[in-house]
Design a protein around this nucleic acid. Structure first.
Lengths: 224, 224
DNA sequence: TAGATTGTTAATCGATTAACAATC
DNA sequence: TAGATTGTTAATCGATTAACAATC
């Protein structure tokens, strides 16, 4: 029963659909057509229908999509209807920012523990979660059925910690360290490389500037 | 002189090339072939050559690429050889995490100011940067030639602040708020939607589990 | 029933990979 | 010169868009 592989691009778009559907629900909207949604989201209606039909027929001809139903179905596809136990390794600002993001719990992500090597942080409590020593990491992961680890530590420490997490049976790493981790095939990695994001922004700013200057030059040439 | 538009996918890969080249430099490697680099980065050599040739011929037949030269050329392309003045709006954990990330300065990103609405934060100093009231935002942006604003505030406040930034002449917004901003065509937005990243991770974990279960079922069927 | 809108097939577009002549 | 490796063209692959019959 080999299911057709879903493309990465489709998966990447699902959370955005989910967000828009959530907002529609809040606004009390009960149904929406692919066309109306495409206008709001600035994508094509065709793409929305193609994307959703990878997972099944959630709509109804002549009616559109039921917002609430589609919302819960996408949640199931993304697996955010189930509970995920998570630990945060690195209790600095970034680690604490993640710990403080309340909505994670609403989506089934339960922060079980935080870890650091800094003795001044160990013992502190953030949002009801005690910061522990990384020495206790493996034991804690095993004892608490932790599937996901958020890695908010410097890149120099990341490979070693990743190895230890893998040996403790972690299923996935949410990697904020500025390096690519090497893990076995059955361990999932999702990278958040903020410095790369900022460089992309830099590129966009510069090419926008270049464009503006070109247009200006064009106008002045026209004048002379 | 309409330059060929560079695809988004290519731009998205440049910072990663830059990172690998930086590491090669640190290791004292002077030159590298597209093939050797492709093995390290787990991409095809063809893609590397195609990507780079969007911007010019940086290599030499029979030799490969000079690491240092390519590194500086990519920096130019990304615009990280120039200085970018930046403000951070929202001085919570996430804003402070960004302020504390030292490498930004090395890449030409200079944090000029931080802003918050919380009176308890206003006046505090983070990494030598005073936290100011958002009341002073527009004036500060104009007076300090600020091009980029990092938005680390709740989504409810984001649209209003974005409007104010635009009216103050900002060129780009690095958006961490969980919403899509509406800005004029000549203002650039780079989104970092952490909750979406976590949902993608969730999907991957679940589909990996499904795969493992399938394989297990397959094995047991084989046995019986 | 008539109108609306999906699900799905076909057409187009773009991105990746392969191949190889050019050339260091 | 011979070997290596690029730059670039051509082939392939995949993703997006368009179109429309199916159907609520």
């Amino acid at each position: 029963m080999a299911e057709k592989e879903i493309s990465k691009a489709v998966i990447a778009r699902l959370p955005r659909y989910y967000r828009y559907l959530g907002e529609l629900m809040e606004d009390g909207v009960e149904r929406i057509s692919s066309n109306d949604l495409s206008v709001r989201m600035k994508v094509t209606a065709s793409q929305i229908r193609q994307d959703l039909n990878n997972f099944g027929g959630f709509g109804q001809q002549g009616y559109g999509y039921n917002v609430k139903y589609l919302y819960t179905e996408i949640a199931k596809i993304l697996g955010i209807d189930r509970q995920h136990n998570i630990v945060i390794i690195g209790a600095g600002n970034l680690g604490q920012a993640i710990a403080n993001y309340a909505n994670f719990e609403k989506r089934g992500f339960l922060i079980k523990g935080m870890f650091d090597i800094n003795p001044r942080l160990i013992g502190l409590v953030v949002r009801g979660i005690e910061i522990r020593s990384v020495d206790d990491l493996e034991q804690f992961v095993r004892d608490n059925d932790v599937q996901i680890a958020a890695l908010t530590i410097p890149k120099t420490k990341a490979p070693e910690i990743a190895d230890r997490l893998v040996s403790a049976g972690i299923k996935a790493i949410w990697n904020f360290a500025h390096t690519d981790l090497v893990v076995p095939d059955d361990v999932v990695v999702e990278n958040v490389h903020l410095s790369e994001s900022l460089m992309r922004l830099s590129y966009k700013v510069c090419s926008m500037q270049d464009k503006a200057e070109e247009e200006k030059a064009e106008r002045e040439k026209g004048k002379s």
